[in-house]
Every structure is written in C-alpha cells, then in structure tokens.
C-alpha cells in the first residue's frame, strides 16, 4: 500500500543526510532559537537566515516543491492565532475600516507582531521540515533515545510510526468494503455508517494493541524497550555543525 512518508526523501545522499541525527537535532534546534531571538525589525537578518536555509535545502537535494508545500501547513495555524493581533494591539493607527457599526483599526505595532510571528514560525517550520525530511525516522527516534528523552515518548512515537499505516490500511479496506455494497442511501445514513466504521476501527486498533503487547511479552518484554545504540559522531558531523554555527553567529553579530 502506498502511503505518504514523513521521511520519503531520507534515502537521498547529501552532507545533510550524512549528518548524525543527534548533532542535527541540536544544530537545527539552535537555528530555531537564533531565529526566535531576532528582533522583528531585522528584516535583513531574516533574509540571511532564509538564504542559509535555502542553501541547506539545495545541499540536501530534497525537492524545493516538497519543502514549499509542506511548509504551507503552518500558515493556517499562524493565521488562526495571529490574524486578529493587528486589530487588537494598541498603538499608532495604520488604517481604519468601518463595517456598519463595527469599526476596525490596524496598528503598526500590531502588524509588526503579526509579521514577527509569521516570519519566525515559517523559518522554524522550514528548519523542522529540512531536519525531518533528511533523517530516517528510525534514526531520529534513536537520536531522541540517545539524548535521554523519556522512553515513554520515544515508544509512543515509534509505535505510532509503525502502526499508523497499518490502521490507515484497515480504514481504507473498510471503506472499500463499504463502497462495494453502497447503493443509494441518504447522506444521514452514510454519516451513521462512517461513525460505525470509526467505532470498529477503534476496537480493531485496541485489539491490535493487545496482541502487540502479548507478542512483546512473549519475547521477554519487562516494561522498558532496550535498543542498541548504533550511532557514531564523526569529524564530519562536528565540522558541519561548526560551519552552521559559525554562519549563524556571524549573522547575529553583523546583521543583528
């Protein structure tokens, strides 16, 4: 069954793909911090950060379209959170609109906050996409384990990654079975059927969870998943990380 994978470009060969996932997580997380701690009016700095990210995308050979399409995911969330800020923030008025009895005013400060949220969240999401798309999810999990992230979180992520497609297959098969027997019926009837399907899916997922747990016990599971650490940090990782940090620090010093 074909599914969209979060790490579908993780098999490419590039310096970014070779980068040890632990060093990569730290480097990209720091990148996000650099972006967050930039003053909202340092437009040139944001541009430079954007250029660094573009260079990294080019280096990673991940298709531009993939990054662009996935980065748009953040826009609705940002809009939902931030779209009212220009109207609510007090300060020098940039424009006023009147719709009958409703008067809306936009302030310069409000626009600055909105821009700040938009540009920082966008650069951050591109950072995250670049990090995730260039790392095999399994390596990412191993890196998290290695970085002492509590076992329970890595276990949840690991099971989610393993079973989300199994459940998606189940749902698709159920839908096909339903379609194969669907002749007519009202919209309300189909909505009810969908609710039943979700119920069945929940029960199946629950039962699958039970049998997975039994299979784990059968192989000696005693409450904690133990994995072998097979990651190695090389000179290349340190060098690559240092270059990125050097660029980020230079931008911070010279562009503000």
């Amino acid at each position: 069954m074909h599914h969209f994978y979060i790490d579908e470009y993780s098999e490419l060969k590039s310096p970014l793909h070779r980068f040890d996932p632990r060093v990569k997580i730290i480097t990209f997380f720091s990148f996000i911090l650099f972006v967050i701690f930039t003053s909202p009016h340092s437009y040139f700095t944001f541009l430079l950060y954007g250029c660094v990210l573009c260079a990294l995308i080019g280096l990673s050979r991940i298709p531009w379209r993939f990054v662009l399409v996935h980065s748009l995911v953040i826009i609705p969330f940002v809009l939902m959170v931030a779209v009212f800020i220009p109207f609510l923030k007090k300060g020098q008025i940039a424009g006023a609109y009147s719709f009958g009895s409703i008067n809306l005013t936009i302030t310069y400060d409000g626009i600055a906050v909105f821009w700040n949220i938009l540009v920082k969240s966008y650069l951050s999401i591109v950072c995250v996409i670049l990090m995730m798309a260039s790392t095999k999810f399994t390596h990412f999990l191993r890196a998290l384990e290695n970085m002492r992230i509590p076992n329970i979180f890595t276990m949840i992520l690991s099971f989610m990654y393993r079973y989300v497609f199994v459940i998606a297959d189940e749902l698709m098969e159920m839908r096909q079975a339903k379609e194969a027997r669907s002749i007519g019926g009202t919209k309300w009837f189909h909505t009810k059927v969908l609710a039943n399907m979700l119920g069945v899916l929940f029960i199946r997922a629950y039962e699958k969870g039970e049998s997975v747990y039994l299979a784990m016990c059968a192989r000696g599971f005693q409450g904690a998943i133990k994995t072998i650490d097979r990651l190695k940090i090389s000179g290349f990782d340190i060098m690559f990380s240092c270059i990125i940090f050097a660029v980020l620090i230079s931008i911070k010093i010279f562009a503000g």
């Binding site: 399994t138 690991s158 990654y161 393993r162 997975v212 299979a215 784990m216 192989r219 000696g220 998943i225």
Partner: peptide, 16 residues
C-alpha cells in the same frame, strides 16, 4: 503486524 512492532527489522530482531 503484531509480531513486528519495532521501527526497523534490525530493532525487531534485536528486541528479544
């Protein structure tokens, strides 16, 4: 799908 629950084949075979 019950027997193989770890992210990679290696991890699954190493689990026991």
């Amino acid at each position: 799908d019950s027997q193989l629950f770890m992210p990679t084949v290696f991890d699954d075979v190493a689990f026991g």
